[in-house]
Design a protein around this nucleic acid. Sequence first.
DNA 1: AACTAAGCGAGACGGTACGTCAAGTCTTAGG
DNA 2: CCTAAGACTTGACGTACCGTCTCGCTTAGTT
Lengths: 195, 195, 195, 195
Amino acid sequence: MTAAAPPRRTGPVRSEGVRLAILEATARQFAARGYDHLTIEGIAAEAAVGKQTIYRWWGSKSALVAECLVEGMLLPHRLAPPDTGDIRADLTAWVDAVLTLLAEPQGETLLRSIIAAAAENADIGRRIRESLAGSESIVGRLEASIGTAPNLTPGAPFEELSETLVGAIVLRALSRAPREPGDAARIVAAVLGPA
Amino acid sequence: MTAAAPPRRTGPVRSEGVRLAILEATARQFAARGYDHLTIEGIAAEAAVGKQTIYRWWGSKSALVAECLVEGMLLPHRLAPPDTGDIRADLTAWVDAVLTLLAEPQGETLLRSIIAAAAENADIGRRIRESLAGSESIVGRLEASIGTAPNLTPGAPFEELSETLVGAIVLRALSRAPREPGDAARIVAAVLGPA
Amino acid sequence: MTAAAPPRRTGPVRSEGVRLAILEATARQFAARGYDHLTIEGIAAEAAVGKQTIYRWWGSKSALVAECLVEGMLLPHRLAPPDTGDIRADLTAWVDAVLTLLAEPQGETLLRSIIAAAAENADIGRRIRESLAGSESIVGRLEASIGTAPNLTPGAPFEELSETLVGAIVLRALSRAPREPGDAARIVAAVLGPA
Amino acid sequence: MTAAAPPRRTGPVRSEGVRLAILEATARQFAARGYDHLTIEGIAAEAAVGKQTIYRWWGSKSALVAECLVEGMLLPHRLAPPDTGDIRADLTAWVDAVLTLLAEPQGETLLRSIIAAAAENADIGRRIRESLAGSESIVGRLEASIGTAPNLTPGAPFEELSETLVGAIVLRALSRAPREPGDAARIVAAVLGPA
DNA sequence: AACTAAGCGAGACGGTACGTCAAGTCTTAGG
DNA sequence: CCTAAGACTTGACGTACCGTCTCGCTTAGTT
């Protein structure tokens, strides 16, 4: 007498190649057309995949985008602030880089699309905060720089400082404020206090 | 020498009642269902209006929403900070009020919908900044309070301070950060400097 | 006791120029685009006339077309059979002329449009019969030619003979039968009997 | 050397049930409301089918009607002439039956709608001729009856004789001529020659 | 001459249907 | 049993015209 058979596991297993093809197609379409104007059918066609294969593994367009984000397929990776030891200079350089990205059409589309996706999907919202303000990047840097700027005192609200910095950039993206010289420095000054 | 006659204007004139009915229907649907899930057909039906009448005067869903915003039909008007003379207390109360609004489901839908609309439509983006950070509300208040907080020095970047404040709130809305006691105070502290 | 006064008749009187402009625009559009694809708005625009002016005087698209027909603005006037005294030759020439008209694209559109209009509007139906088979043209000619063809006997059903002739042409127009040499002669032979 | 593989054909196949539901709905609406006043949306609703499913397979309203016609869903099948051996009696009975059908409101709608459809769509035009004057019905009968009527001589234009007969009926339908006793006999006499 | 009525151009309005797009579900066949 | 293909229902899109309804002229009779 044999033990009950375990649930027989036959047939092919999920194809990693297919998964990647879908995510890459999503990323391409996302960058090219923005979050709205993404279509499942377009992604399926570009990935040479059946629609059902997408629906089987992701529940919605935004889940797809969220996974792209997690995989780092949407944002250029150069977006971490440099680390020269001078927190003000580092943040200023970083803000400036982001504002520069924002000044290019495809960068603008990209950032605003991520914002739109975040507005629609809670997961993406949570992820964007982690990915932009994650402890390894900004909050941690601020904590490590106590004493080097007026606002960086022991017990300062580092989380919130980080949020104001990123928030100011998000607001810029939304409001389409024209870029002006010194913007990055002024934003950093607003967060760290006067130089 | 006479001026050229303006093109003779005959025929019925645009109906203000219809215009208002459409905007009100838009505002109701916007609050009830969010920016995506707005449909022109739904608005037309609720306003008891032909679709063409909407398309005649507005080119897109977002233009409709933008006009609603300008007319003040989307945001509760209580959203201006109080003015007791104590800038820190005033801003804290205001931030707290906004976070409270954000904690209610319909308030959250409303704010995130506005963000989504702004991400899609440049006009709305510009308007949201004016309406949230307009000189009469926050920037002006900061300038009028020079000397009462560490960051409010002569020559401080008041515009950017205002942006960081509003941006932090926008980021909160996007990231769905759970609300915690003292949030408002910490955000204001991040902007104004330590108490 | 006097009769009630008739409704006082003041104001400008119906403009004949406007009436003609509308009918001409109708005829042009009818020939150019066919009966379906006629639009009141298109006619109004082409005639530089308000829509209401059309609706004031005609109740429907088909009434408009019917009046065009009555005014002879739709059919080329050359469509009466010649009269050389030889009924068979005359009818054959006439049928041939109509089939020739039918072989040109605009002639085909025209005839089929009239058929479509007749199918929709009783007035037009009646008119088409009068205008194509009116006593002055075919029935009369048949009656006047008694004895010159096998079927033209005293007491023959001249009305019906005329109908079969015209009907065969209508059927040709509907069925898009390709034209072949001798068609006209055969049709006439079918109606008049063998030569 | 092998032939190129044909494009692999997978996926669900066209649903015959859906096709029939659409054609039946079309036939019902056609009979009930006439050719104009047919709407794709109405058919889709009655067939409980998406509009897109109709547009996927038929390019136009008239293509739909043409297919109905081919499937024999529009015309009552009793419309073939009887066959007693007496061609004059048979045709007279048939014409009489058609004129009777034409005297009922729904029969009139039906016939005129088919004419309207034929005027708009070439396929329908061709089909109506085949279906009304197909060789198995009238032309063949005439040929088989050579010698039994004045016009039925060897070498007579049987095609055209058939056309004049059917054409006369079509013209009747278009012209709304009131029906009178003896009409059928006179029409047949016009075609076959005097009795 | 002032005072009515139309007639008329223009065009806003509530609707209906159009033909298209994409969504998400379901079905078939190949591997 | 995963997958590509794609048929299916649903629902919204934006457009074209419909027929009705004001508007603000202009014009032709009264009074």
